[in-house]
């Protein structure tokens, strides 16, 4: 048993040594909801992300309470009634750049990526598939993507009093600048 642990530990260490990772702790995620009655947007500037440029593995870690709204009341409703951030403080995305074999992100250039994975929000996990662009300068990779998310897929209940003010589909924008981890 000890040997197995040791070997798997070494293997893990070895693979993480060789695989080139790009990271950020200041990624920006914004969401946007637009209805005739109300336009709502919220920003989070402290998003953690790690990308393995060899395997395409891509992870995001987001703290829900870090989302900032223009109006304090909306921020309160969002945290307390919709996403219940006391109960579910974190949101994660674990996925892959599925077409990673077609590109070498360590080489400067612009790349079209397809990202697929599991998004966990409000304790519910759903598959997400989206396109994005990655602009690499070698040491840095700027990534941009947009996708739509439906609150009801994540069992987020919108009270009937505000249901007309919140879109059925929320646009999520991701902007990150990943730096090569040395």
């Amino acid at each position: 048993m000890k040997n197995i642990l040791l070997i798997s530990g070494l293997l893990f260490f070895a693979t993480s040594m060789f695989a080139q990772k790009y990271i950020t702790k200041t990624g920006h995620i914004m969401f946007y909801s637009d209805t005739p009655l109300e336009t709502i947007e919220a920003h989070n500037h402290q998003v953690n992300s790690v990308l393995d440029v060899e395997t395409g593995d891509f992870v995001f870690k987001v703290l829900i309470k870090s989302f900032e709204f223009e109006k304090a009341l909306m921020q309160e409703h969002f945290n307390e009634n919709f996403v219940e951030s006391d109960k579910y403080p974190n949101s994660t995305f674990k996925g892959k750049i599925v077409n990673i074999a077609d590109m070498d992100l360590t080489q400067p250039g612009e790349y079209e990526v397809v990202v697929e994975g599991d998004l966990t929000l409000h304790g519910e996990t759903q598959k997400v598939r989206t396109k994005g662009t990655m602009k690499s300068s070698g040491d840095k990779i700027e990534g941009n993507s947009k996708f739509m998310a439906k609150p009801e897929d994540y069992k987020i209940k919108i009270p009937s009093t505000v249901v007309n003010k919140i879109a059925d589909e929320i646009e999520v924008t991701v902007e990150i600048t990943l730096e090569k981890y040395k």
């Binding site: 402290q46 953690n48 870690k61 829900i64 870090s66």
Partner: peptide, 14 residues
């Protein structure tokens, strides 16, 4: 500051 939580690496404050 306002503490928003822990993301398995850092404690985040705003």
């Amino acid at each position: 500051g306002y503490c928003t939580g822990y993301n398995d690496t850092d404690v985040i404050m705003e």
